[in-house]
Lab assay of single mutants.
Amino acid sequence: QLNEKPLPEGWEMRFTVDGIPYFVDHNRRTTTYIDPRTGKSALDNGPQIAYVRD
């Protein structure tokens, strides 16, 4: 279940091809599976993935 609260300024939620949510921090140009609103991860110790700018 996804959090309904808005993401912090400069953050975006995207999904992997497998449908796993991850979070893009455009301020720091990093990505993470940890939801910045809750501190909880969509994966157990998930790796960071490459930042992609559209």
Rank of each mutant, 00 (worst) to 15 (best):
A50T: 15
E9G: 07
I34A: 10
D44A: 05
K5S: 12
L7G: 02
Y51C: 14
D18G: 08
V24T: 08
V17K: 14
R53G: 14
Q48W: 02
M13I: 10
G10Q: 07
A42C: 11
L43E: 10
G46S: 14
G46C: 08
G39H: 15
R37E: 02
F23K: 01
G46K: 13
P47S: 14
I49C: 08
I20W: 04
I20G: 07
I20M: 10
L7A: 02
P6I: 12
G19P: 00
G10P: 02
I34R: 13
D54S: 08
A42T: 06
E12I: 03
V17M: 13
H26K: 05
L7P: 02
V24A: 04
G19L: 06
M13W: 02
W11G: 01
P36M: 01
P21V: 10
H26N: 05
T16P: 02
H26E: 09
E12C: 13
V17A: 13
R37A: 05
K5T: 11
I34K: 07
G46V: 10
F15H: 08
P6R: 11
E4F: 11
V17S: 10
V17I: 10
Q1Y: 15
F15V: 12
L43A: 14
W11C: 06
K40C: 09
R28L: 12
N45Y: 04
M13C: 07
Y33T: 04
T32H: 01
T16G: 07
R14H: 07
Q1E: 10
K5M: 06
D18M: 06
K40R: 12
N45K: 08
N3D: 14
T32E: 00
D54T: 05
A42F: 11
Y22H: 07
Y22P: 00
P47F: 02
Y22M: 05
P8G: 07
A50E: 15
Y22G: 00
E4H: 02
T30Q: 13
Q1H: 09
R29A: 08
R53L: 07
D18S: 10
V17E: 13
G10R: 04
I49V: 11
Q48G: 13
G39A: 13
Y33E: 03
D54E: 12
P21G: 08
G46P: 07
T32S: 05
Y51E: 15
S41L: 06
L7M: 13
K5E: 12
M13D: 01
P21W: 02
R53M: 07
P8M: 03
E4L: 10
Q1F: 04
N27L: 08
E12L: 02
E12W: 01
V17N: 14
F23A: 02
R53I: 02
N3R: 06
I20S: 10
H26G: 05
Y51K: 15
E9S: 11
P6Q: 15
K40N: 13
A42R: 09
E9L: 10
E4S: 11
L2Y: 14
D18I: 05
K40A: 14
S41K: 14
Y33M: 05
P47R: 12
I34F: 10
L43P: 14
M13V: 08
G19T: 07
K5F: 05
T30I: 15
M13R: 09
D18A: 12
N45F: 07
D54C: 01
P47Y: 03
P6F: 13
F15W: 10
Q48V: 09
T30D: 07
Y51T: 15
D18H: 09
L7V: 05
R29I: 03
V24C: 06
W11Y: 07
R14Y: 05
P36V: 01
P8L: 03
I20Y: 06
N27Y: 08
L43V: 14
A42S: 13
D18Y: 03
S41T: 14
G19E: 13
D35K: 02
R14M: 09
G39M: 09
F15D: 07
V52C: 13
E4W: 02
R53Q: 10
V24M: 10
G10Y: 04
E4P: 09
L2A: 06
Y22R: 01
T16I: 02
K40D: 12
Q1A: 07
D25I: 02
A50F: 09
R29E: 09
F23Q: 00
D44H: 10
G19V: 00
L2I: 14
L7H: 01
D25N: 15
D18F: 04
I49K: 15
A50R: 11
V17T: 11
F23D: 01
A50S: 14
Q1I: 15
L43Q: 09
R37Q: 05
A50C: 07
P8H: 00
R53D: 15
G39K: 07
R28K: 14
G19A: 12
T38E: 14
E9K: 13
V17H: 14
W11D: 02
N27I: 08
P36Q: 01
P21E: 05
G19R: 15
S41F: 11
A50L: 06
N27E: 08
D54L: 00
G46Y: 07
K40W: 09
T31L: 02
P21R: 13
F15N: 09
R28W: 04
T30A: 13
S41D: 09
P47W: 03
Q48P: 11
T30H: 07
H26R: 07
I20H: 11
E4R: 06
D44E: 13
G46N: 08
T16L: 04
T32R: 00
R29L: 08
R14T: 07
Q48L: 04
K40G: 14
N3A: 01
N27P: 10
Y51Q: 15
N45D: 15
V52D: 14
G46H: 11
K40V: 14
R37D: 03
P21Q: 10
E9R: 11
V24Y: 02
G39S: 12
V17G: 06
V24D: 01
F23E: 01
L2C: 04
P47C: 05
D44K: 09
E9Y: 10
S41W: 12
T31P: 02
E9F: 07
P6C: 11
L43M: 15
A50Y: 02
D18Q: 07
T32K: 00
I49W: 08
F23G: 00
P47I: 03
G46M: 11
R53E: 08
R29P: 04
P21N: 06
Q1V: 05
H26Q: 12
D54H: 07
P6V: 12
T31K: 04
R29C: 12
R28Y: 08
P8F: 01
T32Y: 00
V52T: 15
T32V: 00
G10N: 07
I20L: 09
G46D: 13
Q1S: 03
D54G: 04
R28Q: 13
D35V: 00
I20F: 06
G19K: 13
A42P: 12
S41G: 13
N45P: 14
E9V: 09
P47K: 14
R29Q: 06
Y22L: 03
K40Q: 12
L43D: 15
L7Q: 03
T32L: 00
K40T: 15
T16C: 06
R29S: 11
Y22A: 00
T38K: 11
T38M: 05
L43R: 11
R37V: 06
I20N: 06
E12A: 07
K5C: 14
V17Q: 10
G10T: 01
A50K: 15
Y22K: 02
L7E: 02
Y33F: 06
E12D: 12
N3I: 11
T32I: 00
T38I: 08
S41P: 13
L2P: 05
D35H: 03
G19H: 11
T31I: 04
V52G: 09
R37N: 09
R14S: 08
P21A: 12
L7C: 05
T30C: 13
V17Y: 09
Q1W: 01
N3P: 03
E4C: 08
I49N: 12
